[in-house]
């Protein structure tokens, strides 16, 4: 059974249909890519899948429960987390604090408890900090834990957003163009990180333009064009699909 299914999702903005009756299934333990030319509706699909946009039709089902229409934080608590094409980090906060915010849904201390230092507050804070350091080590960033996110170089900002997403203890991660702006070395490292994340049992969905990365890491690919799904399948089939080549890969070599 699939972990996440997108069922007939349509999303319009005014007269533009950004996503048009798109359906696909994401299976547990895989890396699933969503590709397509600019304006194909990839990010809108992500927004619908994570509660940041409501679809005009269709639904998104995660582990048997319909999540369409839920507010984003509820969806995060169920185990569906995302990153953004333009990173949405907290620039004034340190790398460590960014990751700690990611743990918000998995920790409990509220205003009253924190203010009064009620029993358990110290223990939770200490455990959260230890866990945050562990997550930063996972993306090899613990040495910059005290640096404000706004002062980090672009590549590390991308990684930090992934680390923050991991801190929510997701079952599935949706990464919106994680390789955008990364150099070749960083992209290769990102591919490694994605595989490592998958191997810890977290399912990964990426929207990505870097075809080298997509073809290398994906188990399954969905191709969107002008809001519609035009193909889906494993990388080798997608590379040979005439509709895909025409819509998207015709102008660029697949491993550009």
């Amino acid at each position: 059974m699939s972990m996440l299914s997108v069922r007939g999702v349509t999303k319009r903005f005014g007269g533009v249909t950004a996503v048009d009756d798109v359906s696909f299934e994401v299976f547990e333990g895989t890396i699933h890519a969503v590709i397509g030319p600019n304006g194909a509706g990839k990010s809108t699909a992500f927004n619908v899948m994570t509660g940041f946009d409501r679809p005009d039709a269709g639904s998104v089902v995660f582990e048997g429960a319909t999540i369409t229409g839920m507010r984003p934080h509820r969806i995060v608590r169920l185990g569906v987390v995302r990153t953004f094409q333009n990173t949405m980090l907290f620039d004034e906060m340190t790398a460590l604090e960014n990751v700690l915010v990611g743990m918000h849904a998995r920790t409990r201390v509220g205003f009253l408890g924190a203010a009064l230092s009620l029993p358990g507050v110290h223990a939770e804070e200490r455990l959260a900090r230890e866990q945050a350091h562990r997550i930063l080590r996972l993306v090899d960033m613990d040495d910059v834990h005290a640096v404000p996110a706004g002062d980090l170089p672009h590549g590390q900002r991308r990684l930090l957003e992934i680390a923050r997403a991991l801190a929510t203890e997701p079952r599935i991660m949706l990464l919106d163009e994680p390789a955008a702006g990364l150099n070749n070395v960083e992209t290769a490292q990102l591919g490694e990180t994605l595989r490592r994340i998958r191997d810890t049992g977290v399912t990964v969905v990426i929207v990505e333009h870097d075809m080298g990365l997509v073809m290398e890491v994906s188990d399954e690919i969905v191709v969107l064009n002008e809001g519609r799904k035009i193909a889906e399948g494993p990388p080798l089939l997608i590379q040979k699909d005439p509709a895909v080549i025409e819509a998207y890969l015709g102008e660029e070599t697949p491993d550009a």
Partner: peptide, 30 residues
């Protein structure tokens, strides 16, 4: 009491909302 709030979980949630409301929601903050 205020200092206790700002250096712990609820204080981080406040600063997260200041930094990026969308980002805060994506971290599971209501």
């Amino acid at each position: 009491l205020a200092a206790n709030i700002v250096r712990r979980r609820p204080g981080r949630a406040l600063r997260a909302i200041h930094g990026s409301e969308t980002g805060a929601q994506a971290c599971g903050i209501d």
